[in-house]
């Protein structure tokens, strides 16, 4: 019984969101507002049990009082709700910005910079495997030309401009492929919802 009620509620909410494809309407507005509220509530409870409890409350309970700093900075963040003293929240923001800058500085330099460069500089010619050799060549040329395109300190003219032009071709192919991939992922979500409506709810698909 509980399961059936759940299926009906989920199906009606799904139809409510789909109704926007016709035009904006109160049914959609209701579902949209419910989605906003439920999402906020979900993240509120999730952050409490998965972050606040293990990282703050449990550490304090175990006598690691240094973690009170996290609680203080967190409460300072909430002061943003009060306009007169909202500026204090910038201290917490500074902690977030500093941590992000410090961590990303090394993390991106290593993973996106060094490792990607290392993976590009590889043995190009693979004996007895022409397609792989051509592919490796495409990667080296594409990456180099793509980087040339991103170098804006020199005008894109002459040979340099030629490399930049080849670079933009590769970037366009990359964007096109990413776009195609995104469309397909949305399509699979859509098929999942249609399968829910026609299969789980109406029982028309076995």
């Amino acid at each position: 019984m509980v399961e059936t009620i759940g299926i009906w509620i989920a199906a009606i909410l799904t139809l409510g969101i789909f109704s926007f494809l016709y035009k904006d309407n109160p049914f959609y507005k209701f579902c949209e507002s419910l989605f906003v509220g439920v999402s906020a509530g979900y993240w509120f409870a999730t952050t409490f049990w998965q972050v606040m409890m293990p990282k703050l409350v449990d550490n304090l309970a175990a006598g690691r009082w240094i973690y009170i700093i996290g609680g203080i900075f967190g409460i300072l963040m909430l002061l943003r709700l009060f306009p007169k003293i909202g500026w204090i929240s910038r201290w917490s923001l500074a902690l977030v910005v500093g941590t992000t800058a410090g961590l990303y500085f090394t993390r991106y330099l290593v993973s996106n910079g060094m490792v990607q460069t290392e993976n590009t500089i590889m043995p190009i010619f693979v004996t007895g495997n022409l397609p792989q050799t051509i592919g490796n060549l495409v990667i080296v040329v594409g990456t180099f030309c793509g980087l040339v395109y991103f170098f804006f300190s020199k005008e894109h003219k002459g040979t340099f401009g030629g490399f930049a032009k080849v670079g933009i071709w590769f970037i366009m192919v990359s964007f096109g492929a990413s776009f195609g991939y995104t469309v397909m992922s949305r399509m699979s979500l859509l098929l999942g919802r249609l399968d829910y409506l026609f299969g789980t709810w109406l029982g028309l698909i076995k």
């Binding site: 952050t47 972050v51 606040m52 990282k55 973690y67 996290g70 900075f73 967190g74 963040m77 977030v96």
Partner: peptide, 9 residues
């Protein structure tokens, strides 16, 4: 840990 706590707040 501080980052995650403040991000949660």
């Amino acid at each position: 840990d501080l980052f995650f706590i403040v991000a949660a707040f």
